[in-house]
Every structure is written in structure tokens, then in C-alpha cells.
Design a protein around this nucleic acid. Structure first.
Lengths: 177, 177
DNA sequence: ACCTGAACACCGTTCAAGT
DNA sequence: ACCTGAACACCGTTCAAGT
């Protein structure tokens, strides 16, 4: 890669990360190009789709979320923690919940792989919590992810605190009794 | 109101209802105007904001949702039914969950009153279910509405059936034990 | 190889000009 | 009183022309 290209690539990444954090994942791409002082055509050359840019900015975080592993020994707690991390990510980047669902449903999305990795981790944690914790055995991974994204979505609409309360409420709903 | 104006008003309403149902609440207003074969200026004259048009199309349904009243005698069941109706509305009009939250938060929205009416009904049902049912006393109406809209949002992303399952799960989470 | 910016299609919103 | 459509500002996306 040519030096100027590499520089532009980094510039776009930096400004995109800031713009996504400030204005949400649906910010104008033209605005990002302006902030990076490059042409819109250059942005498209490096990132042919919005999801490609999102993957470059958020892929690591999603994959990190994917490699999160038990630390409590407590399988229920591990699942709850994961939910909390996911929700935290979503409050940092408005629109993440929507985007994750879309990327999971679309195999052609450039974000698909990262989201799938996250999906698989969640499935793993769920299985653990069902076998060694108190989560109902009839909860399906798709239910959990839908729940997680719905929770994240609601957190996006709440600058306030009660994400944890809601989160606990929901996990309670998943428990066998 | 002049006869042509009245006719245009109705035309817009009809096409808007169809467009909202088909393409979601964020459909292009220009598209609605085109479908109604009137000028975009005329649409704006009758409905100065998108929320004004939404209120004309959906206000009745929201208010109907507001006047839903106990029928079971069972306070928990009444609350669950209400949730179900709300979710059904949201699956019929993609974007409703988001819009309702926005309208509730914005007193200047032309949808504010209709959503407030709904809010008040939900508060009433919640109180009943806390006093005569099994819902925890520490659940706040804002929690419930956030939950309801989150549930509706998730249903929008699921052409499938499991809205009821999730709904029951969530209500379970609200129960005292 | 890579960058630029014009081009096209689309939308939200306003407003002067018409009837 | 009401309607029309041009006008302006904005965006997504592509591509011919430049270096």
C-alpha cells in the first residue's frame, strides 16, 4: 500500500470512530470524509460499504466481546457480565443493536463474521449457564441474542442508569423455577 | 375546508397509512405525496411535520390502545394482553417503538398526546397488576414502557412467532417471587 | 495505484407564484 | 384558501479524469 493511501486509511478510521461515537452508526459518510479532509471517492475506495467501515472500526471490539470467557466459575454471572459488556458497547455506539441484527441476518455483510464470532461466544455462555447455572434449558440462542440486542436498544434510548436493573430483570425471566 | 382540500387530506391519509404499513414509519414523504398524486407542498400544508401525519394515521390506534381495559378480572393477564396488543401494533408498523419513545420524550411532538394517553393506561394497568396481581412493587412505569418498546422493537426484527414467548419471559421477570 | 470531484438520483423543507 | 413546483441543502454511490 502506498504511503499516502495508508495515511488516508488511518485518517478515515480515526474520524469514523469519533463520528460513530458522537453521532451514532448512521452518521453521514460524507461528513466522515470531510472530517478526514479526503474525498468521498477515497473513502469508498478503502471501504466499499458502510459495514466494511464499521467492521474496521468495531470489528476488534466485537471479536473481543466474542473471546470473553468465564471468570467467576459462576456460569450465570458470566452470562450476565457478557450481557453487560454488550449493552455498554451499544450505549457507546448508538445504532449498534440494529446493526448487529442486520449483520447477523446478512451473510454478505462485511460485519457478518465479527458478529457471528460474537454469536458463537454467546451460544457457548448460554449453554454453560444452562448446564451449570440456573438458566432454562428451552431458551434458544436466537432468543438470547434478540433479548441482548433489545436490551442494548433500550439502553441506547436511556442515558440513565437502569440498564443493569433491566438486565437483571430479564435474566431472571430466563431462570428456571 | 374547501372540497379539494378535504379530498387531498383524505388521499394523503390513505396513501400514508399504506406506505407506513408497507415500508415503515420512516418512508419518504415525497413518496407518499407521489402515491397520492399531490404536490409535496400540499402534504406539508396539511401535515407540517412527520409526527403530525403519524398522529393522523396512528393516533386512533394508540388512543384505542390507551382505552383498553381489564376484561379478565386477572390483573396480570390484562397487563400481558396490553403488551401483546402493543407488540402487534409495532409489527404492523415498523419503527413504531422508536417513534413512541421519541414522541414521549418530546412534548412538542404532534404525537405526544396520543402516546401520553397510552402511557397513562399502561401505568394504570401496571398499578393494578402490582396491587391485585403478582408484579413486583418496585417496577416503575418507565421501566415497563421501555420494556414494552424494546419488546416491540425486537418483534419488528422478527417476522417469526416468538414474540409471545419473549413477552411471557419478560413478564415473568417482573414477578415477585 | 491512488485520488479527486463532478454527476446522478434521491430526500426534507421552504416559499414565491399561481388559481 | 389552497395548490404547485422550483429552490436550497443535504446525502449515497459511481465513475471519468487526473497525478
Amino acid at each position: 500500500m502506498r504511503a499516502d493511501a495508508r495515511r488516508n486509511y488511518q485518517l478515515i478510521l480515526t474520524e469514523a470512530a469519533a463520528a460513530f461515537a458522537e453521532r451514532g452508526l448512521d452518521t453521514s459518510l460524507e461528513d466522515i470524509a470531510r472530517r478526514a479532509s479526503i474525498s468521498i471517492g477515497t473513502l469508498y475506495r478503502h471501504f466499499p460499504t458502510r459495514h466494511a467501515l464499521l467492521d474496521a472500526v468495531l470489528g476488534d471490539r466485537l471479536r473481543q466481546l466474542a473471546t470473553a470467557r468465564p471468570q467467576h466459575g459462576d456460569a450465570d454471572g458470566t452470562l450476565t457480565d457478557w450481557l453487560g459488556h454488550f449493552v455498554a458497547e451499544a450505549t457507546a455506539y448508538r445504532g449498534l443493536a440494529e446493526t448487529v441484527l442486520a449483520a447477523l441476518a446478512d451473510p454478505d455483510s462485511r460485519l457478518h463474521a465479527s458478529c457471528l464470532a460474537m454469536h458463537d461466544t454467546a451460544a457457548h455462555l448460554l449453554r454453560d449457564a444452562q448446564q451449570h447455572g440456573t438458566i432454562r434449558s428451552d431458551v434458544h440462542i436466537d432468543d438470547l441474542l434478540l433479548l441482548a440486542t433489545a436490551l442494548a436498544w433500550s439502553a441506547e434510548h436511556r442515558p440513565g442508569q437502569p440498564a443493569d436493573r433491566l438486565s437483571n430483570l430479564l435474566v431472571d425471566g430466563l431462570r428456571r423455577r
